[in-house]
Design a protein around this nucleic acid. Structure first.
Lengths: 246, 246
DNA sequence: TTTTCATTGTGTCAGTATGACACAAACATA
DNA sequence: TATGTTTGTGTCATACTGACACAATGAAAA
């Protein structure tokens, strides 16, 4: 790592959300020789936009491009830099000794969250500091490094709020999906259950769905209809917002 | 200025909103020997939280403490650092030559917006780089330094959105105010006009206002009733949100 | 003193959105 | 062929929203 070309004291952390088996998942890195997990992150080259560096992180971990990605907060408290953190990391072999000075800086970190289609992430790839890169359920998180649990929580809160202004399914669901699947996504993000019939009514009123004449077969019950998003209308809705409130 | 103790490559810019004569105003600094204006800003000491440094900037410019202040975005594009900007600033005497190296860095800046009561800001004080500190109307802005116009625009957009989740008057209006004044504030922020009767109905339904038996005399017309906020309920509303949407 | 006039305060009505709720149809499995 | 769970659909009462009109007020003008 060439630290001379990096923007000092600035990092990026990405909360990468996926949806699988009716659960919200987050892509996390398992640190080497440590039972803590970390958000995928990175640093910012001096001549690169911060946003594009976040895209790069995402690409490296998921292999995916052109993904829904939002910056949501700059975490800038002093106490997020634990004293002795870099020592520990060096000792455990997580970071090489020659980089200790770099990691000794006080860092602020830009938080990004991404929404990705679970099945499209073929092989999540760990970085140099980690031994694994895995999906973890949002409601059953492992112990997290530094303030990464806080960052994750704030990302989820932000997502929850943004649901009032914009739809989110296009980024998290496969091309075709059923209404119950879409509802499960909303229920998971919002952490509450919704009435089946009212959900369908409201969602259809957004006028961003296209009903196909296909059905999801194979379940032990009545085969539900498959829907897909009308991408043009969907994007228009994202842009103009789902006007509620004023 | 002791640049050794500052977090490198990181600045803060504050968009300070006030409301006066039915207009949204922003507190801006007029640069020395330059017709450009700038957002009040500053740098972050290595051992201070970014948020608290924003509070400090606000206090320095407005003299005010305990103010509504929100971080809304990190501006991290490379091209926001104009080549030759520091040269120009030194030439115009805006910054002393010995600080040129510091200002030559590539900076990312954390954007904060503040809501303050116009009349409480007695004497807006310029900083070393500026000759004046004045309120300027949001819809009649002077030429702005670097990307400060963008930052301001994003702050306004954010404010507009947050209006759906929270009330804002407590921070921008004096202790007592009339319903038409509150409406004017909303209309200004939202940039559209609202129906008088419907506005009143909706605002009262939030249950955060207390009607007093005083009236604003002196206008050439029927004297409107004065209201004040029920601070306890107001803060509860801020916390829990004005549930709309899901 | 009286008149004028812009502004405030209030209520209604129609249309729309929301929450609560029940029953028939479908599909794999038994 | 029967079973059991899930899907798809409609209605009703209630709450909310947008559109609208008229009387009361108070300073200023006549």
């Amino acid at each position: 790592m060439q630290t001379e070309n990096l923007h000092p004291g600035l990092s990026i952390d990405c909360v990468i959300f996926g949806f699988h088996e009716n659960e919200l998942k987050v892509l996390l890195l398992k640190l080497k020789n440590d039972d803590k997990w970390a958000l995928p992150g990175g640093f910012v080259e001096k001549d690169k936009d911060v946003d594009s560096e976040a895209v790069r992180v995402l690409k490296k971990r998921t292999g995916l491009d052109h993904i829904f990605l939002n910056q949501f907060h700059l975490f800038g408290n002093v106490n997020r830099n634990e004293a002795g953190h870099s020592d520990t990391m060096v000792k455990k072999g997580v970071i090489p000794p020659e980089l200790k000075a770099w990691f000794d800086q006080r860092f602020v970190t830009a938080g990004y969250y991404a929404l990705v289609e679970y099945s499209r992430v073929k092989k999540p790839t760990p970085d140099l500091t980690s031994e694994r890169c895995d999906w973890r359920a949002l409601n059953d998180l492992p112990p997290m490094m530094l303030d990464h649990a806080d960052i994750l929580k704030k990302a989820h809160q932000t997502l929850k709020k943004e649901l009032n202004d914009q739809p989110i399914g296009l980024n998290l669901l496969p091309e075709h999906f059923t209404m119950p699947e879409l509802q499960a996504l909303y229920e998971t993000v919002l952490e509450k259950s919704l009435d089946r019939r009212n959900f369908r009514r409201k969602m259809l009123s957004y006028d961003i769905l296209i009903q196909t004449d296909l059905r999801r077969k194979g379940g032990a019950h009545k085969a539900p209809l498959l829907y897909k998003f009308d991408k043009e209308k969907y994007n228009k809705a994202i842009q103009s917002g789902l006007q509620s409130g004023w």
